[in-house]
């Protein structure tokens, strides 16, 4: 189990290996990687966050996911600072004996991360990104 909030990039394969190395009881390993999309306003964005609260919010989301699904492991990495188009921004990895739990838990974590973890995107040229109603609405399916 781990929550990491960092400026540095991450290696998806290496992060998955951290979960699977030395054990053979995992049947499903799901990973989601979010990337910075190229925007009309420019090719770079800056991600601001709330140090301290960010970690707590992500840990709570992870704990909530573990309360709903029997996960064998879970890893959440979210970057902050300046990020160019194409850069990796977020990684969620979930492990479970069978695929349904790992798939569903990864989606649950991403849905809550989008609108409950204190991150704010600012695009070069276009300013602060507005929250999407669709992201808030996505939480409804988990209640």
């Amino acid at each position: 189990m781990a929550v990491l909030v960092q400026a540095e990039d991450f290696d998806v394969g290496a992060e998955m290996a951290l979960i699977t190395t030395g054990r053979a009881d995992i049947g499903a390993l799901v990973s989601f990687t979010g990337l910075v999309r190229e925007m009309a306003g420019g090719s770079e964005m800056v991600l601001e966050h709330y140090p301290g609260m960010t970690e707590k919010a992500l840990e709570k989301i992870e704990a909530d996911a573990r309360g709903r699904w029997a996960l064998q492991d879970c890893r959440i990495i979210h970057r902050y600072g300046p990020l160019a188009a194409g850069a990796q921004i977020v990684l969620v990895i979930t492990a479970s004996p069978h695929r349904a739990a790992a798939f569903e838990a990864a989606e649950f974590i991403m849905d809550f991360l989008k609108s409950r973890a204190p991150f704010w995107k600012k695009e070069a040229g276009d300013g602060w990104v507005d929250a999407r109603e669709a992201d808030e609405a996505a939480l409804g399916r988990w209640t």
Binding site: G34, V90, S115, W120, K121, D130, A131
Partner: peptide, 8 residues
């Protein structure tokens, strides 16, 4: 205080 969050 902050605006609605836009992570991910």
């Amino acid at each position: 205080f902050f605006p609605p969050m836009t992570g991910g």
